[in-house]
Structure formats: C-alpha cells, structure tokens
C-alpha cells in the first residue's frame, strides 16, 4: 500500500508538471493581458512599466521557469485584476463549488441508483420504461437550457425558489456553507438539481444494465437457492457487485461535476470557482486561470486515488500494489 501510494504520488507530480506546461502555453497564446489592464490612453513608457511589473517582458521559457520556481513553493502569482494571491482567491471560492458538486452528486446517487435498480428489476413494466424514458431526456437536454427552464418555471412562474446566489450561509470551521440554512437550501436546490441531471441519468442507465446483467449470473440463482429473501439477494448480492462500476463512475464524474459547474454557476450566479474562471478568462487574468486549472487537476488526481482505494475495498480481487491473494 505504501509503495503504491508513493508511486501514485510520483505519477501525480508528473501529470501536474505536464498540465502546467500545457496550460501555460494555452494562456500565453490567448492574448496580452496588459492591453486590458491599463488605461487605453497610457503612453508606451507606462505600458512597458506595467509589462515589466507583471514579468511579461521575459521570453516564454523564462516566464515558465520562473512560474515553476514560485509555484513549487505554493505561490501561483498574484491576480492581475484583484491583486491578491491567485491561489487564495480560488480557495476562497472553492467551498461554494464543492458544496454544489457534492449536493448534486448526492442527488444523483440517492435518486439514480434506486431508480436504476427498479428499472433493472422490472425492465418490461410501465415504471421501468418510464424511468428509462426520463433518463434519455435527462442526458439529451443541454444543461444551460434546463437551467433556464428551471428558473423560468420555479422562480419566474411559480416564484417558489430563488434564481441566483447562495442565500444565507453559516460558517462551519471557518468555511461558509449554504445547506445548513433554509434560505441557503432553497438557493442550493435548483442549481444542484440542474448539475445533477446528467449524472442522474447516467447512474440510472449504469445501475439498470448492471442489475440486469447480475440477475443472470449463477451466483444470484445460487443465492436464491439458499433460500435468501429477495431483499438480501438484491440488497447484498446484486448491489455489492454492481457498486464496483458505479463507484468508479461516481468518482470520475465528481471531477467533471466540478468542471461542468462552470455552466451552472454562470446561469444561477453561484459564486464559485466556475464563475471566477469565466471572469478571469474574460479579463485574461493569467495567474488565476493557471492556478484554477492546476487546482482542478489536483482534485481529479486526488479523487481518482480515492476511487482506487474504495474499489479495492469493494472488490476483493483487486489488491493495490502488492502481489498477494493468489490461489492455492
């Protein structure tokens, strides 16, 4: 396990390095931020001064090496726009995004897996077919359109749910969260549902096909031959087997939920990192863009690691790193 973790850490470091290089090339190509930041009437001397102040006069490789040097100490530079450290700006916005992503994932799991199970157990019934029809709608409709329709219906037409912001927040361990206040919860629900819809549909399909496949296996027939109740056959024998692919997908999708939160956050004006990224791209705020992407990549790497660990708990045939568990 230890050697496995070390190897993973080394690989992760390499991925981060590659990623930082690609991102740096990317932002270098999209334009010169100086044009946007200084007064259009400024003369050349002032323009040069601003360029030197931001370190943009040096050649590309020098800029990149300088960035690597400071980044290795945890300093990703200061935001051109806000003039605060880019990383702290992101960390300040990150809890809102993670709260949204967690809540969305929770909706997808709590609703998607049971619906998928029902559809898998009774594939030819009316309920089973209805669930599948809903799931097709769920992942065919574009997120932004669903978001707009939700606002139209629940905020404008019915006036039940607020359409933007986080609402009242409570500090937990110094981090503001919305889900502990009623007002915050009403603000959270619509964007979370909007974000969850795609994963929800995905989980329904995954659970359904997994269930249908598992039901045909001999071990299910053998479990029934032992006289186990249906609840136990499905709740333990079937569910534990289909959880293996489901956990993988939930984990991988959690990363993409954070990434896709950009669209949802923009529509619902949710003050998270997605909105920060869009604003930063518009203003060519390079350090924030780079820092954001690196934070997201780190999150992906961390989540993947967690998924592997959970995977080895769920599936005894997988043992991380070591060559143990052979037959006799």
């Amino acid at each position: 396990m230890l050697s496995y973790t070390l190897r993973r850490l080394f690989q992760s470091g390499f991925v981060l390095l590659m990623m930082s290089f690609l991102v740096f090339v990317g932002v270098y190509a999209i334009g010169n931020p100086v044009e946007l930041l200084i007064n259009p009437q400024a003369d050349d001397a002032e323009r040069l001064r601003a360029t030197i102040a931001m370190g943009l006069d040096k050649p590309f490789y020098a800029q990149y090496l300088a960035f690597l040097g400071t980044a290795s100490t945890g300093d990703f530079g200061r935001s051109f726009v806000f003039n605060v450290p880019a990383l702290s700006l992101i960390l300040q916005k990150l809890p809102a995004t993670i709260e949204l992503a967690l809540f969305a994932t929770m909706i997808a799991v709590v609703v998607g897996i049971p619906l998928g199970l029902i559809a898998g157990l009774k594939p030819d019934s009316f309920v089973g077919r209805a669930i599948m029809a809903l799931s097709i709608i769920g992942f065919s409709l574009p997120t932004f359109w669903v978001g707009l329709v939700l606002i139209m219906f629940f905020s404008v037409h019915l006036g039940w749910l607020p359409s933007n912001g986080r609402g009242d927040t409570v500090d937990v361990l110094g981090i503001p969260v919305s889900f502990l206040t009623w007002d915050g919860l009403t603000h959270l629900f619509m964007p979370a549902f909007n974000l969850a819809l795609f994963k929800l549909s995905l989980l329904i399909r995954l659970t359904r096909s997994g269930t249908r496949e598992a039901l045909l296996q001999d071990y299910v027939k053998f479990a029934r031959a032992k006289g186990l109740s249906n609840t136990r056959v499905i709740g333990v024998h079937v569910l534990k087997n289909i959880m293996i692919p489901i956990v993988t997908v939930i984990g991988l999708e959690f990363g993409s939920v954070i990434a896709f939160a950009i669209v949802t956050e923009t529509i619902f004006a949710w003050p998270g990192t997605g909105k920060l990224l869009i604003d930063s791209i518009n203003q060519l705020d390079r350090p924030v863009i780079v820092a954001y992407l690196l934070v997201i990549v780190s999150l992906f790497i961390f989540i993947n690691f967690l998924v592997d660990v959970v995977y080895s708990v769920l599936d005894p045939r997988v043992r991380l790193g070591a060559q143990s568990g052979g037959g006799h």
């Binding site: 001999d218 071990y219 053998f222 031959a225 534990k240 293996i244 769920l314 599936d315 005894p316």
Partner: peptide, 12 residues
C-alpha cells in the same frame, strides 16, 4: 450448480 467458478459471489 454446474460451474463452481460462477456460483459463489465474487465480492463476498
């Protein structure tokens, strides 16, 4: 059953 490789649940 016939196939002992399939009758026991692999994850329990």
């Amino acid at each position: 059953f016939q196939d002992p490789m399939m009758t026991l649940n692999p994850v329990l």
